[in-house]
């Protein structure tokens, strides 16, 4: 029993349908608990006041915006190396979710930045990097949409994802070089000193868990839709082929 068995679309669909209710429920519980805890049962920050609480949306969505791209990269590599259709379709399914996560991060950042920095937008390295990431997502989705043959589209978008990753990382450092910025350091890191205080930390972890589950549920759901679309296509192709054969025999 290897993991690759689930590369078969039918088996994948069966498993994903069994897992999905749990993911949706988990996401709902985590987000419910985390957001209520974070919004109503944590103290206001002594400098930032209650505006700090947008962190419970901002940080998880920003994390998922990057992780979604990373997932697409891994899925693209699996497609290039092992040619499993499910992998390519999962990458396709993840992109719009990633776009939404990026937008949430950008908008909550703007709402947070306005009272803090006195501006909706600043060309700060982090903000700029996310804007560039957003452009990469747009290009990736547009390329999927523009190509009719699904396997060609999968190949081309997979290569674009690889090249895009290199350039996204490059842009990140180029932007750092270009402007040092005013964004605070990472909210979460392994060396404890930089971290936000514990009272904010635990509800934040719960929210991040909720976003991860929500992301997984959405991607599985969308992948299932893509698989069904391909199934319809295969059925229609089979139908036209048998029709032409019957016509030829007659």
């Amino acid at each position: 029993m290897s993991l690759w068995e689930y590369a078969n679309p039918v088996k994948f669909l069966r498993l994903s349908e069994r897992v999905q209710p749990w993911l949706w429920a988990g996401a709902a519980i985590c987000l419910g608990v985390g957001l209520v805890w974070g919004f109503f049962f944590t103290p206001d920050d002594f400098r930032q006041g209650s505006t700090v609480k947008i962190i419970y949306l901002h940080v998880p969505s920003a994390l998922m915006a990057i992780n979604a791209w990373f997932m697409m990269l891994v899925a693209s590599l699996i497609w290039i190396v092992r040619r499993h259709h499910v992998s390519a379709l999962a990458a396709k399914a993840a992109a719009p979710v990633g776009i939404v996560m990026t937008l949430i991060a950008l908008f909550t950042g703007a709402i947070w930045g306005q009272p803090m920095w006195g501006t909706w937008w600043a060309w700060d390295p982090r903000l700029t990097s996310f804007l560039i990431l957003f452009l990469f997502y747009l290009g990736y989705v547009a390329l999927w949409e523009a190509i009719e043959d699904p396997d060609t589209a999968a190949d081309l978008t997979a290569i674009l994802c690889l090249v895009g990753t290199v350039f996204a990382v490059l842009s990140r450092y180029a932007v750092l070089f270009w402007n040092q910025g005013l964004h605070q350091g990472a909210s979460l890191s392994l060396d404890k000193e930089e971290n936000v205080a514990d009272v904010f930390y635990f509800p934040l972890l719960v929210c991040i868990g909720g976003f991860v589950l929500l992301f997984l549920a959405l991607v599985l759901y969308r992948t299932g839709t893509e698989i069904r679309l391909r199934r319809t296509r295969a059925l229609m192709a089979r139908e036209t082929r048998s029709a032409t054969l019957r016509a030829e025999e007659a």
Binding site: I132, L135, G139, V163, F167, L170, S171, A174, W178
Partner: peptide
């Protein structure tokens, strides 16, 4: 148009430096 959408983000590091 798609070409511009795909290529312009890739131009960012070159433009910056």
């Amino acid at each position: 148009l798609l070409l511009s959408l795909l290529v312009l983000p890739l131009y960012v590091p070159t433009l910056i430096f």
